[in-house]
């Protein structure tokens, strides 16, 4: 698998290969978030937390059970999906929009848990993970992710998700059981975050709970929003620009968050649909903030 990497290393600075690998990992995670936020319209502020479930899950399974890498990766993805159901189901069952808060809380709780567990190495972090990730593996998985999402979006399932984003009450009147679909989309999006996390663990060979904090979740949200909510090419573009720009422009990491914040404000003003998207971020935020209990405050007629 790593023959391609060795080959490329003769021509490209290994540092850039590393950057390309991280880009691929973020692409997979961001595409997962694209399904949740861009397609289904559910704001998640804890996507990195689901990455961490996959990262620690895959790494620990690899370290303790010594299973093949791809199995560990898949297991990490499935654990993240399970966590998605665990967080998504109760918070989306409540009328109104509690997912944002729940995901934020989940991320913080998980960080503290990983920080204190013996098995995850506590605050020291988890070291000694074998390096199994290669450029080829990552980009094969990026292509598979795009392929899977493209198929999902162009189906009855995907149309139902968009309908929920656009008008949940109308969607329910078309026979769509919105809770199931929202939890489904959330679990699938979290699955991809988990896969990305597993790749990350086996690339950096060291995990620290701080790697998956709110800053990273916000970063992923920026990737999806910049390119344009609801668009796969938009998500790829947004992620690529925001991952490579700091490398090219040599931003120091302290300024990154500031830059993202600024960029978000500029986008909201001048290009609320993102670079390629069809969905208005402002409208989504307003809807989420404005949503109240079903049946008492949303007359449908």
């Amino acid at each position: 698998m790593s023959m391609l990497d060795d080959f490329l290393r003769q021509f490209i600075n290994p540092y850039y290969i590393q950057v390309l690998m991280l880009l691929g990992i973020y692409l997979i995670a961001a595409l997962g978030l694209h399904l949740i936020t861009g397609v289904t319209g559910q704001l998640s502020f804890g996507h990195a937390a689901f990455m961490s479930v996959g990262a620690y899950g895959a790494a620990l399974i690899n370290l303790h059970l010594d299973l093949p890498f791809l199995i560990c990766l898949l297991a990490g993805g499935l654990l993240a999906a399970l966590a998605g159901v665990f967080v998504g189901f109760p918070s989306m069952r409540l009328a109104g929009d509690y997912l944002g808060i729940a995901t934020l809380g989940f991320g913080e709780i998980l960080r503290v848990v990983f920080m204190n567990l013996e098995i995850t190495g506590g605050a020291r972090g988890l070291a000694g993970i074998p390096r199994e990730t290669s450029l080829l593996t990552i980009y094969v998985l990026v292509i598979l992710t795009i392929f899977a999402l493209h198929r999902l979006q162009n189906s009855r399932f995907g149309r139902a998700l968009v309908a929920i984003r656009e008008d949940e009450i109308a969607a329910e009147c078309m026979g769509i059981k919105s809770l199931w679909y929202k939890v489904g989309a959330f679990a699938i999006g979290s699955f991809f975050a988990g896969i990305a996390g597993g790749l990350y663990a086996h690339l950096l060979q060291y995990l620290n709970p701080g790697d998956f904090g709110f800053a990273r979740s916000f970063e992923l949200l920026c990737f999806v929003v910049l390119g344009g909510l609801g668009s796969i090419p938009g998500t790829v573009l947004g992620t690529t620009i925001l991952t490579l720009a700091p490398e090219v422009l040599r931003f120091s990491s302290e300024y990154r968050m500031m830059m993202y914040g600024l960029l978000m404000v500029i986008m909201m003003i001048f290009r609320p649909r993102g670079l390629l998207g069809g969905v208005d971020l402002m409208r989504l935020v307003k809807r989420v903030l404005g949503s109240r209990r079903r049946g008492t405050a949303t007359p449908a007629g």
């Binding site: 198929r151 999902l152 162009n154 189906s155 009855r156 399932f157 995907g158 149309r159 139902a160 968009v162 309908a163 656009e166 008008d167 109308a170 969607a171 078309m174 026979g175 769509i176 489904g184 699938i188 609801g230 069809g278 969905v279 208005d280």
Partner: peptide
């Protein structure tokens, strides 16, 4: 579904008369 094409709006209405799910997709 304002940001969807006209045809897709109608297709969503077909939901109760079709079955395919995530795995099918």
């Amino acid at each position: 579904f304002k940001n969807s094409p006209v045809l897709d709006n109608v297709k969503v209405g077909r939901h109760p008369r079709s079955k395919s799910n995530v795995l099918g997709a």
